[in-house]
Nucleic acid binder design. Structure first.
Lengths: 180, 180
DNA sequence: TCACCTTGTGCAACTAGTTGCATAAACAGT
DNA sequence: ACTGTTTATGCAACTAGTTGCACAAGGTGA
């Protein structure tokens, strides 16, 4: 149950409409908690009903009209509560590793191309993270908030680094040596 | 839609009953594709209906009686097809990173203890992986299947290594420096 | 022989996330 | 005026995964 809290965090950083949130989820926040606009609108409705956020007054709050939300005190409290609460790490689910395991049984035919594609995607993501780091976190200037946000970004960078290295290694000892 | 393929892989490695599968999912396969026994029984039913697996004949195929399954040719074909098919990487969802991001806004109170707990859990998992590596993949002896399975295990080891390092770094520059 | 524990199988309801589509206003070109 | 595109909001149905519970057989000990 993290989506509402992801939205609360985003709204605290900056009050936004559903579409603006969607765009921010496609960038920074979505890097470790993705969501579609349908999920976001549904959740905004719930959060408003529950009194954790409220719509900012607008001229014509009808369809096809921007509707911005801000976080209420109850929402901030709930986010603080959730952040401090102990949570067990959820088990991983990785289809790519599963496919490698399956390939150990039914053969590797057709897998290599997709591994190369994944490598490219991870390289691209890594480059994007590095750009963000250069732009948003130059040396010096470190508030607590900045330090934490930088830490989160470093996790992204390190994870993508892991994947690119692992995929390169996989591709190395993968199709070259003849099947045995 | 990976659970059926995880089950097919497991059954090809060794025909098993629902409970045996559940136990194997708690160990090796479940490290990157976890599943509860309820999911497994439900999926076994579907796979049997679809003609991808079949129950091995037993004396008393009733309730409270072991029922083993084996993969049929159609099941092997489906697994090979799925393994070779191109798949897009699913976006990550990581509540812990999200919590750090939230903490950048609402404060870090109460977070440190849970980070330490996560660190311990990852250290334990890493130790377990290393044991498995020592036991199952001693130097030399490398069939294609072994090589791939070792590669998958290495992914697990490297990921846990990343998490332990990242959490240690987080804890370092986290509670020590006074809030500012 | 009754009470309890373990092993093994399974259903039903719920929660979270995805996919597909509908609606409406504003604007741009023709 | 009409056609199409972009911006913006939202519902409904579906899929996958989780949680809670039930049922049955066999063994153990009191």
């Amino acid at each position: 149950m993290s989506l509402p809290h992801a939205i609360l965090t985003a709204l605290l950083e900056k009050p936004s409409s559903g579409l603006e949130l969607t765009r921010r989820f496609d960038r920074s926040i979505g890097y470790f908690w993705s969501a579609t606009h349908q999920q976001i609108y549904r959740e905004l409705g719930r959060l408003e009903t529950d009194g954790l956020i409220r719509a900012l007054p607008a001229e014509q709050p009808s369809r096809g009209q921007k509707k911005s939300y801000e976080v209420l005190p109850a929402g901030r409290d709930e986010l603080a509560r959730w952040t401090a609460a102990s949570q067990d790490p959820k088990p991983h689910r990785d289809p790519l590793l599963l496919r490698l395991r399956a390939a150990a049984v039914v053969g590797t035919a057709g897998l290599e191309a997709d591994l190369r594609r994944h490598l490219q995607l991870h390289e691209r993501q890594l480059a994007e993270y590095r750009e963000i780091e250069e732009r948003d976190f130059p040396p010096g200037r470190d508030g607590t908030g900045d330090r934490l946000r930088h830490l989160v970004l470093r996790a992204g960078i390190d994870l993508e680094t892991f994947w690119t290295q692992w995929l390169r290694r996989a591709l190395e000892d993968f199709p070259g040596p003849p099947e045995g």
